[in-house]
Every structure is written in C-alpha cells, then in structure tokens.
Amino acid sequence: MIPAAFEYYRPTDMAGVIALLKEHGDDARVIAGGHSLIPMMKLRMAEVPHLIDLQAIEGLNGISIAGGTVKIGAMITQHEIINSAELEKAAPIMKEAALQIADPQVRYMGTIGGNVANGDPGNDMPGLMQCLNAQFHLVGSDGDRVVDARDFYEAAYMTDREDDEVLIAVSFAAPIGGFAYEKQKRKIGDYATAAAAVQISKEGGKVGAASIAMTNLSDTPIWSEAAGAALIGTACDEASVKAAVTAMLSDIDPTEDNRGPVAFKRHAAGIVLGRAIARAWSRA
C-alpha cells in the first residue's frame, strides 16, 4: 500500500492554494486531515500528482458562534468538535455525531472540511449538515460562494465543488429543540450500516419543526423532507413515527455490500430512524 509519487505543497495563504489548483486542475487535491484521501492514495485508487496541504493556512481552524449562527472552519478536527464546550451548547448533535466517527486517533486528525468535501457517502458529517440545513463556504479563482449542504452532493465522491475551489467553512443556524445522531456500525472505525440525524422542535406538545437526514443509505446523504414533514404537527406518536420511517424509506436507495443485503439495510434504517426520533423527541 504505497502511493504513487506526488508533489507536496504547503502554501501559507489561500491565494497560493487557489493558484496551485488553477495551475494543475484535477491533477491537484487539497488535503486536510488526510483520513479519506491518504488511504485512497495508498491503495492507488486516487492518483494525486499534486497534493496541497492546508495545515499552514490561517483562518481555517476556528469555531465561532454569533447571532445564532455557528461557523466552523474546515480544518477543525472531530476531536475539537467533541471538546468545544460552546459548540456543545449551541449544537449538541455535533458532539454526539463526532463521537461516533472512527476512533480517537482518527478524530485527532480528521477534519470537518475533509469529511464534508470529499463526498464519501460513508462519512457522517454530510448527512448531519443536511439535517442542520448548513451552508458550505467555498473560495475559488472566480471568487467566493455559498452552497447549501442539501444541494452539494451529486453522487459518490461527486459534489458541486469545482476543481479549483476549496471548502473553507461550514455554517448553520444553531438548532433548537431535541436532537439525536443514531448510528449502527459493525465495529469501531466502521462506516454506518445505517445512520440518522434528527432535529425536532416542540411547540405546544406537538412537533413544530423536524429535520431528518440519513447516512450511507444511498450514494449521497439523504435529507428526507417528507420524513420530517410526517412528524410536523403530530405528538410524535407511534403512527407518525411510522409514517416518517415510511417516507424516509422511499427516499433512500441502499446497495448490498459486506454490511448486508438491501432488505436488512432498509430494516436497520427504519429502526435507527425510529430510535433517533424517539431520543430527539425526548430531548425536545
């Protein structure tokens, strides 16, 4: 497991990064924590002649919470997400999800930017970002732009990001109400067999708002608008949870792999979502 030769760059500002990306096109990739890209390079499934390290770029590793908006720099690690008290207060689902990613060693290196930008359907943060209706902040040679997480993913490893763009931050409105990130996996370090991100707010004993996203059950994360809608206005009773699960199941499209056949994955997805809704509602 030895990667092909590559040129390594460590620019100190974003202009330098963009210039390199512009020069080398899709022969260049930026690297943050490297926990998706490096294994792919070692397996020679990703050939990256020009590797641009973002470690020396300033301004990508802050967490700010102001005016009800949470903004997280792309180089913030899962470990930092877990240990940020103010983030836990503003969006506790972030910590709950991050704790279910890989293992401590990986979480020390793996970043939120890498997790969401890579487009790996197994990653947990993309679904969570869709649940939170997050915005992704991109910079490129044509300037800055913002893309909704719900519009970002096109297919496995295919996203709306252009080759010469870099994802520098994610932001979202601090969620209100109850939350849950529920994940079934075979072992520590594994991707989800099925995972659900749920945010629910309660108004007068009924569901006021609900947002539901699923991970690793299609070639992109799945934000199931219908599943959330099925809960709104209900008391989150058994029938409405069942309706939400049914709605979710018509949005996902899992494929068979070593985690199991499609029928099992669909069953597990329903169970995982049911449990996530129950936990989120209990916290709402």
Binding site: Q184, T193, R259, G260, P261, F264, H267, A268
Partner: peptide, 16 residues
Amino acid sequence: HDHWRIWQTANNLGMH
C-alpha cells in the same frame, strides 16, 4: 454471526 446474518435468522423465524 454478523449483524445482518443474525437479523436474517430472526427474519427467517418470523420475528419481524
């Protein structure tokens, strides 16, 4: 007996 095979056993026995 990984997760899906255990699930399959339960499923075959009508437990779902």
